Simulated assay, not measured.
Amino acid sequence: MTSVCATGQHDHHDVYAQQCPCRGLLELIANKWTALAVGALAAGPQRFGALQRQLEGVSPKVLTQTLRRLEDANLISRTVYPAVPLHVEYELTEVGWSLTVPLKALRQWVEEHVDEARV
């Protein structure tokens, strides 16, 4: 579906246009914790604690913020199971699954080229 960019200057979305809503999505998916969380969820639904253990170095606050933003963007879903204590699982949505391929390629590129880059 083609829509008019928020700038009103294009009949399509243009990530290079400052006011295009694409920018917000690009900012979200270019975040390191997003890339790592999506990669971790590609293994299947996971609880918060499991994600936090897998994403070494992420604080509970940052992981919570990342998961909320991903849920708001419809990239993941959050399911609460009525149990004591509450059981909450996160999993990729259909559109979230479509993001796994480019993010996996990016993670692989980083691992292959980290020694050549000056970081």
Rank of each mutant, 00 (worst) to 15 (best):
V58P: 06
R107S: 14
T34W: 08
V80P: 02
L92Y: 12
E112C: 08
I29A: 02
T100N: 06
R69H: 14
V15F: 15
H113Y: 15
L63P: 08
E94R: 09
A37F: 00
V58E: 13
L26K: 07
T93H: 09
L55G: 14
G44C: 11
H10V: 03
V101Q: 10
W33Y: 15
L63D: 13
G39C: 03
E71G: 02
L92I: 02
E111F: 05
Y16F: 09
L106D: 01
E27G: 01
I76K: 00
A42D: 10
H10D: 13
G8Q: 12
G44K: 05
Q54C: 05
D115L: 12
K32R: 07
W97M: 14
C22F: 06
L26D: 06
T64E: 06
V101R: 10
D72K: 04
E116K: 14
A83N: 13
Y16V: 06
Y81W: 12
Q46S: 08
K61F: 09
R78T: 05
A50E: 13
V101S: 07
H13A: 15
T34N: 07
H13Y: 09
P45Q: 14
L70G: 04
Y16K: 04
L75K: 06
G49C: 04
C22P: 01
G39S: 08
H10W: 15
A83V: 03
E94M: 04
